[in-house]
Design a protein around this nucleic acid. Sequence first.
DNA 1: GGATGCCGTGCGACCGCTCACAAGACATTG
DNA 2: CAATGTCTTGTGAGCGGTCGCACGGCATCC
Lengths: 317, 317
Amino acid sequence: MADLARVAGVSKITISRALSDSPLVNRDTRERLQALAHELGYKLNVSARNLRLRRSHTVAVIVEMKPSHDRTMLDPYPLILLGGISQELTEHGYSVLLTTRQGATAAAVQAADGLILLGQGSRQDAVRRFDKLGLPMVVWGAPGDEHIVVGSDNRQGGRVVAEHFIRLGRRNPVFVGNPNHPEIFERLNGFVDALAAHGIKPLLIRRDEFTLASGGDAMHSLMDRGVPFDAVFACSDLLAMGAIRALNTLGRTVPGDVSVVGYDDMPLAASFLPPLSSVRQDWQEGGTLLARKVLALIGDEPEQSETLPVELIVRET
Amino acid sequence: MADLARVAGVSKITISRALSDSPLVNRDTRERLQALAHELGYKLNVSARNLRLRRSHTVAVIVEMKPSHDRTMLDPYPLILLGGISQELTEHGYSVLLTTRQGATAAAVQAADGLILLGQGSRQDAVRRFDKLGLPMVVWGAPGDEHIVVGSDNRQGGRVVAEHFIRLGRRNPVFVGNPNHPEIFERLNGFVDALAAHGIKPLLIRRDEFTLASGGDAMHSLMDRGVPFDAVFACSDLLAMGAIRALNTLGRTVPGDVSVVGYDDMPLAASFLPPLSSVRQDWQEGGTLLARKVLALIGDEPEQSETLPVELIVRET
DNA sequence: GGATGCCGTGCGACCGCTCACAAGACATTG
DNA sequence: CAATGTCTTGTGAGCGGTCGCACGGCATCC
């Protein structure tokens, strides 16, 4: 910058002002200096500016990346969140620093202006760990009192499925999933409450893995125990698909004998045989919202948790 | 750090050295200062260090994130790459700065010590754009002369499928995919070459989208044209699944009448009905390799392109 | 005419860290 | 005893920006 100043015949500070479009410098000078900087291929030193301004224009996104550990970062859908976040932050001149929980001790994270936590659903302790960094922070998941949380309305998700089953005349619904996970616990709650209004109490089959095998396994154990059931609410599409396959093998038809609803509405759900009914969340919007709230917090504006509506996509199952 | 130094009764530089485990300071002093720093909750100012050291310990990963634009960042599998990259970089004290091509002009990218490009397969021009940053750079994709590239052996991928078809006695194979994409072009080449050794010339059905619908559509157009075929090599699992569904609808059995092989071996492939044969790439290893090579380049060590072997998983189709 | 104001620009300091270099304490050597 | 070396610590500078404050030039006002 000193070089540039010498070439242009002005002082460093004028360059600095010109490049940041400050109205303090004369319009003509400003444009001349900007053109010159561009021409000479001048690149601002970000580290220097970060040091002086005491901010980094960076938001750290901390994800759970351990494979096969309830919902992992490698699931495609949570990743659309990342897309939404990235887009929104980029638009506002911020960068995304991607880390795992393990890597979050790395130096660069501490330099971030804000924090977004994804997929930490079942680990409130992990979330709390980041409190002490004292950074503006927004969390994806089920709302709680401790943090600013953005998430889908999982309770509504459970409710709409319950109402769907009621409408179909189902009387013995089953819930398959892991209620330790706060988001799924909410789905279960919504499901149970809405059914209770009709005097129905669903059966809970606890399954921690979100896999086809796990869904199939759940159906087998149900049949083995001889429990009567005519509807399955699986808290992921893969579980639902696994369940349907298993039911067919076991000689029960879907949706004839049993109705099945999944969660997330993954692209394949529509072309599954039979096409899978599923609850859709707006991940993209969620990401945008997460980003917007961190930015607001960074700008010292007050913010609050927010819940996004979900939509039941009724197909054949 | 000055404060810390005052409290500890030493100079700034001794603190600095102690915290970076420099052997220059006495072992006891070092441990005492480290303990003190930890106790007082001292956090190194990363921006200051970056400025002084003229490096950021950050690698920018540039992905293609536009939805529905050949392979997008939102496909799950390319994302395992990101997992591998992240893990390897974190282990070496580096951070991942995630950006899209659009966001890559943002200040922070220029501060990165290195660059990894993902999913820019069909846009060599885009890749070239980053050359002028003059940063150590590694690209995922098909090998070329211009850059250091890490990628799967797509040619081998095509070859093993060809050999598989030959072994099954198929004489009229079809390739479905987008040959404009360099990686897929390689698959096609390997496929064509291996078949040529047996005097067979496959048919190419050009499809740009990697969707079920597109796969089905390809089969319909084949049947409409009355072209005889007994094997389909689809360059993605979704295309393959769509093709199988369509073939069934059209009254042709898989694998009775037609053999089908997909690509990527996504988790659902194994539980598809019938279980899908597919070519598997080692994404995780690819990510690790990408990261390792950037780090080497950053450390001024010479590096070269590398190709990873693929594996044909033969299932029922 | 001098006081007052605005506009555009520049000087010097400083953000927090680490480098080159120096220097004191002590042991070793001839 | 001085010369030399090793070990440990400190001094001052500077990485490349931006902030507070000051300054000169010109128009405006009474």
